[in-house]
Design a protein around this nucleic acid. Structure first.
Lengths: 207, 207
DNA sequence: TCTATACTGTACGGTACGGTACAGTCAATT
DNA sequence: AATTGACTGTACCGTACCGTACAGTATAGA
C-alpha cells in the first residue's frame, strides 16, 4: 500500500540485527550485552554489524530510535478529537499507558536510564517522541478548555499531573522488574479511576 | 544521644568508600565505574574494599541499602496523622516528591533499572522501603476514610493514582537526565495542584 | 615502647570485550 | 554461467577491568 519495496538483503540483515539487539538489551542490559551475543543471535556477522551501524553505540542509537517510533506511533498519529470528555480522556489514557508500559518501551527506558549521560540526545529524542508529546497534546487542549479554572494551575501542570496519575507507580515497578503482568481489564480499570479522579476528584460534592 | 559510638577506623573507611561509590555510580553508572575509580576517590585501597564488601556487587548492595534507608527515612518515620485533610496530603506529598527526586534516589533507581535482573532482591527492597511503603500508608488511610466512594475504586488504586500524580512525569525526566532543576517553590506548587485535583478534580462543581 | 591489627600501594594474572583485517562464500543481475 | 558486490567466519590486537597477593606502613592498645 505505501511506498515499501521488497527489502534488500542488506535491509533484512540490518533489521535482524536491530531485533536481536533489542531483545538482548532487554534481557541483559546494554553494557552486559556483547557484540558477539548480538552477532550470534542475529545469525549475522561482525563485519556487517560494523558496516551497518559503525559500532556498538551506533547500534544502540538505531535500536532506540526504531523502538521509540514503533511504540509511540499510535499516540502521535491519533488526533484525539474529544479530549474534553471522559471518554476521550480514557481513550488517550489507555493509549498512553499501553505505550509507556510496553516491553520495548521499558527496555529503552532501562537502557537510557543507565546510558543517558553518554547519549543525551537520544534520551531527549525518546522523551520528546514519547511522554513529552502527550504532555503537549494535553496541555494544548486544556488551555482551550473549560477544564482549567482561572489561576488554579497551568495547562502544563495539569497535563503532568494527569499523565502521572495514569502511570501511578506502575512504570517504576516495570522498570525495576517487579511487576506482575497487568492484564487489559486491570489496566483499563486503573485508567478509568485516574480519569474520574482527574475530572471530579475523590472528595468534593460529598460532605 | 543514641547508641552511636565514635566510629572505628574501619567504619570510617567503609563509609568513605560507600560515599565515593554513591557519587560515582550517580555520575557514570554502575558498569562504567571501575573499582579503581572508587578506590581512588575514597582515598582507600583495593584490599580494604574487598575486605569490607567482598567485591563490586557487594559494594553495590551496601550502597543501595544505605542510600535507600537515608533517602526515604523521613517518609517512613513520619506518622502523618491527618491524611484526610488537604494540608496533610500536601505534607506527605512534598515529603514523597523530595524522597523520590533526591539525587541519591535517582542514582539508585538508575542503577537498579539496569541491574535489577542481577540483584532482584535489592530492587525489591528499594521498592518496598520506598514507593511501596507510601502506597501502603495511603491505602490504609483511604480505607478508613470518607474519601473513598463506595464501589468507585479500591484504596490501593487511589493510592497509586495519587502518588503517580505527585510525580507526574518528573521522575522520568530526572532518570533520563533531562530535567532542569526543580526549585522548592515549583515543587510545592506542583504538589498542591496534584492534591487539589485529587480531592476536588478539575471539572466538577463547575458546569 | 612494643606488638598486634588494620589499612595502603602496587603489581600481576586471567579474562572479556570492542574493534579491525582478511580470506572465503553466497546471492543477484546480466 | 560469469561477474560483481555484499555478507560470513575467524583470527587477532590492544585495552580495560575484576579479583588476588604481598610487602610496607600507619594506628590502637598494653
Amino acid at each position: 500500500m505505501s511506498a515499501e519495496k521488497t527489502p534488500t538483503r542488506g535491509e533484512l540483515r540490518r533489521q535482524a540485527m536491530l531485533d536481536a539487539a533489542s531483545e538482548l538489551f532487554l534481557e541483559k542490559g546494554y553494557e552486559r550485552t556483547s557484540l558477539s551475543d548480538i552477532v550470534c543471535r542475529s545469525k549475522g556477522s561482525r563485519s556487517t554489524l560494523y558496516e551497518q551501524f559503525g559500532g556498538k553505540e551506533g547500534l544502540l542509537r538505531a535500536m532506540i530510535e526504531q523502538a521509540t517510533a514503533v511504540t509511540w506511533q499510535a499516540l502521535n498519529s491519533n488526533t484525539f478529537a474529544d479530549l474534553g470528555s471522559e471518554e476521550g480522556l480514557c481513550a488517550l489514557g489507555i493509549c498512553f499507558v499501553h505505550a509507556a508500559l510496553a516491553p520495548q518501551s521499558v527496555a529503552v527506558f532501562r537502557v537510557l536510564a543507565a546510558e543517558s549521560e553518554r547519549v543525551p540526545e537520544v534520551a531527549r529524542l525518546f522523551f520528546e517522541l514519547g511522554p513529552r508529546s502527550s504532555e503537549r497534546i494535553l496541555a494544548e487542549r486544556f488551555a482551550n478548555s473549560a477544564l482549567v479554572r482561572d489561576g488554579f494551575a497551568s495547562p502544563e501542570q495539569l497535563a503532568r499531573v494527569f499523565l502521572g496519575s495514569l502511570l501511578g507507580v506502575l512504570h517504576a515497578r516495570r522498570v525495576l522488574g517487579l511487576s506482575v503482568v497487568l492484564d487489559e481489564a486491570e489496566m483499563e480499570s486503573h485508567v478509568r479511576v485516574a480519569v474520574r479522579v482527574f475530572l471530579d476528584g475523590v472528595g468534593c460534592c460529598r460532605a
